[in-house]
Write a protein that binds this DNA or RNA. Structure first.
Length: 561
RNA sequence: GCGCCCAUAGCUCAACCGGAUAGAGCAACGGCCUUCUAAGCCGUGGGUUGCAGGUUCGAGUCCUGCUGGGCGCGCCA
């Protein structure tokens, strides 16, 4: 419909140019938007306002000229000029209703496109270190990151989901020491407990499992415990595998799976860290000072230079980060999106600067970042403090168990990434209508319920009869619902382009509202076969779009509540 | 002090490359179940879009400066 109007306006422009009303060199991007107020028709364009200045005419006069030049079309029943010079289009009932046929024909594919042309995109997200269970912040990253991947796939990209973690640094040593202390029967209050050791109960679980000689399988590794309290290397290896398995299980329960697990240690093993250092030195952007090797990142927009190699000879995390991203580039990802917590935003400039210093042909501003702000968790109105090192924090698993997977994913993905999020456990737990995910799911379940009713009455949906009678969907509420359905592909495209899965959630709430309104106003199970089937078709189309949209969020579409 | 992000109804949040009278949900108030699931619908009240300027036909949206909040500013990750 929208495309039809744009095409009509395009023809009108050509005509006006031929008539000399418009300069021949004007080629504006024609913007047609759905209206907010149905008194303004179904679609509106601000074209006359945009062109008023170059044409040297009053907007309303130009609008009249444009309308006069519009070709006839069966899709448009009426046009109006309104306000300062908007042109409003009233779609014909037939044209609006065609979306129902389109949705039913496309099914799961409705809203999807091939616009991405199979371009490879890598999305790195979660990337938690294996030092403990995933917390709510990781959950937000998982929900946003995975939805983003689903969106990118929906618009035709070849997406790789990647999880990067440090399996060898100081934090991991601390983990190993903590587990070893538990293995030896020590607690955080005892003398000999490692300084800054991980105090959480899960450390005891790891220790017990280690002592029992258990075998753990994570997606990317497979380790049997030695059970020897003195073998720190064995403890470390086991603890990492144990916690990776834990995280994998949490993510699986959350509906998130990765294609690639990338180990920081592999960068060292493969000589990629060393090669990166050498390359940076060769490019002349480094210097030594106070026994450390620095990279002059200030040449590339950073506010201070960064240490790459410490005076003790070890590398800072910065260097493997650069080596890792060089590796991504070399793997052929012209587009990479890193989803991470905003508390790490300082790495953005730094990593990009490091990549520029390599002079490897990597574009400035590569890779992209989506940063999510902190998640505050409250229980009984009191903030639950997130502290990984202290070991007391709300885990993702807690939320999935208490709140349910669907509501948790919806809550965490339904808000803009760059606004802070308060996750009220009590509110999210309550199975009340406070929870928007139920509102959307209920709309889906209601359609299913009508179908059950249909069957109970010994009737069935007649597809051909329905499509032949779509023109009988003339109620205002039906028209509003159909207009909403028609917008879905655009919503998907826009959400993917702006990397904001939250737009899909917003759309679904609007769609569900339109449906509920329609449901209350218009009875589906009427005597008239033609009308009943047409309305059933509208319900089925709505159900399809809700299902498609929820799938982009990784949320299920139940058939009954 | 410097950098990044945010500020919209009492609360939680929307607002599609700047568009018409800023929208939903919750909370408040009033209606709607002998009729497809009332986890729903309809209606009422509720706003100087933090403040002050600027850009233009038009600003919640863009620019500048403030105020308030979050995060970051390690030879930690």
């Amino acid at each position: 419909m929208k495309e039809t109007i744009i095409a009509l306006l395009d023809e009108a422009l050509v005509t006006l140019k031929q008539q000399g009303v418009l300069p021949a060199d004007t080629s504006p991007t024609i913007k047609v938007d759905p209206t907010k107020d149905k008194a303004h028709g179904d679609y509106a364009t601000n074209l006359a306002l945009m062109l008023a200045k170059p044409a040297g005419k009053k907007p309303r006069d130009l609008a009249e000229a444009l309308v006069a030049a519009l070709p006839e079309s069966a899709a448009v029943s009426k046009t109006e000029i309104a306000g300062p010079g908007f042109i409003n289009f009233f779609a014909s009932t037939d044209a609006v209703a065609q979306v129902v046929a389109q949705v039913l024909e496309s099914g799961d594919a409705y809203g999807r496109s091939l616009a991405g042309q199979g371009q490879k995109v890598q999305v790195e997200f979660v990337s938690a270190n294996p030092t403990g269970p995933l917390h709510v912040g990781h959950g937000r990253g998982a929900a946003i990151g995975d939805s983003l991947c689903r969106l990118l796939e929906a618009v035709g990209h070849d997406v790789t989901r990647e999880f990067y973690y440090n399996d060898a640094g100081a934090q991991i040593s601390n983990l190993a020491l903590s587990v070893q202390a538990r293995v030896k029967g020590l607690g955080p209050e005892d003398a000999g407990w490692p300084e800054d050791g991980y105090r959480g109960d899960y450390i005891q679980d790891v220790a017990n499992s280690y002592l029992a000689g258990e075998t753990v399988h994570a997606d990317d590794r497979h380790v049997t415990a030695k059970g020897d309290p003195e073998d720190l290397d064995a403890i470390r290896e086991f603890a990492v595998a144990y916690l990776r398995r834990e995280q994998d299980l949490d993510l699986k329960a959350f509906g998130v799976e990765f294609d690639v697990y990338f180990l920081e240690s592999s960068l060292y093993e493969d000589g990629k860290v060393e090669a990166t250092v050498e390359r940076l030195i060769d490019q002349g952007h480094t210097y030594e000072e106070e026994g450390a090797l620095w990279l002059r990142t200030t040449d590339f927009g950073d506010d201070k230079d960064r240490v790459m190699r410490k005076k003790d000879g070890g590398y800072t995390y910065f260097l493997p980060d650069v080596a890792y991203h060089l590796d991504k580039w070399q793997r052929g990802f012209a587009r990479v999106i890193n989803e991470q917590g905003a508390d790490h935003h300082s790495t953005v400039t730094r990593v990009r600067a490091g990549l520029q210093a390599l002079d490897a042909g990597i574009p400035q501003g590569w890779p992209d970042y989506v940063l999510h702000q902190m998640v505050l968790v409250t229980r009984s109105g009191v903030e639950v403090k997130l502290s990984k090192r202290a070991g007391s924090y709300v885990t993702l698993r807690d939320l999935i168990d208490e709140v349910g997977r669907d509501a948790t994913r919806y809550f965490l993905a339904a808000r803009r990434a760059d606004s802070q999020l308060t996750f009220d456990i009590d509110l999210a737990r309550s199975q009340s209508n406070d929870n928007p995910v139920y509102y959307v799911q209920y709309a889906h379940a209601r359609v299913c319920s009508v179908l059950r009713r249909l069957e109970a009455e010994g009737l069935s949906f007649d597809h051909d009869l329905a499509l032949a009678n779509l023109a009988s969907l003339t109620e205002d509420q039906e028209k509003a619902l159909m207009n909403r359905l028609a917008r879905y592909p655009e919503v998907v495209a826009h959400a993917a382009a702006s990397r904001e899965p939250q737009q899909v959630a917003q759309y679904l709430q609007d769609l569900a509202a339109d449906f509920h309104t329609c449901y209350n106003a218009v009875k589906v199970m009427v005597e008239d076969d033609a009308l009943r089937n047409a309305r059933l078709a509208l319900g089925l189309a709505t159900r399809q779009v809700i299902r498609n949209g929820l799938d982009l969020l990784g949320v299920g579409a139940p058939e009954e509540m």
